[in-house]
């Protein structure tokens, strides 16, 4: 197997072992979800190559891995923005104005729900209840770092968060110099 087929193992070998150790030896398939989360650290998207690799690690078929990716909404087969802004617009939040809030976020970024900004930084999505209904408007940001909640948000909070998030790479570039 070429190096290319071993992206995860090469990079996260130890973590993969820790994950596998959580489950009985003959139940490796259980690790598929944590491994997919691990894989999404690479650009927040699951590729065919990654699915093949996970299938190999777990001794299941690639199709079985793909089924999982397709069933659960926090795995992405399609590429989106570097940050997915996932705003809850479910009933309890909607009662507290989250539909309007979502539209405002969209306006701020110049996209519609489900779309990605031109610079590929943000995708705005409307999602189901996030278990933070009392703190509406609420959204989570899903990026390669993981998922973080932002509660009791105003549109100016969002604006400064956006600024902060797009700055990060610039700061890194500064450091590189």
């Amino acid at each position: 197997m070429s190096k290319e087929d071993n992206i995860l193992v090469t990079k996260y070998g130890d973590q993969i072992q820790v994950i596998l150790d959580r489950y009985p030896d003959d139940q490796k398939r259980s690790a598929v979800m944590p491994l997919l989360f691990l894989a999404q650290r690479e650009g927040l998207q699951i590729t065919d190559v990654i699915m093949d690799e996970i299938a190999n690690i777990l001794g299941v078929s690639t199709t079985q891995v793909a089924s999982i990716v397709g069933f659960y909404t926090l795995y992405y087969l399609q590429s989106g923005g570097r940050n997915r802004i996932q705003i809850c617009t479910d009933l309890p939040c909607a009662l507290r104005g989250s539909d309007d809030f979502a539209n405002q976020v969209c306006d701020t970024l110049g996209v519609k729900i489900g779309e990605t900004t031109e610079d590929s930084e943000f995708t705005v999505e409307a999602v189901m209840c996030l278990a933070a209904c009392d703190k509406a408007p609420v959204f989570q940001i899903h990026n390669s770092e993981g998922i973080s909640y932002f509660e009791n948000q105003t549109i100016s909070d969002v604006q400064s968060l956006i600024d902060q998030l797009v700055k990060v790479p610039e700061i890194l570039e500064e450091d590189d110099k």
Binding site: D90, L91, P92, M128, C129, A131, A132, C133, D134
Partner: peptide, 11 residues
């Protein structure tokens, strides 16, 4: 798993 709309106690 707390996912019922309107539930936020377990969190």
């Amino acid at each position: 798993d707390e996912s019922e709309p309107g539930t936020f106690k377990d969190r």
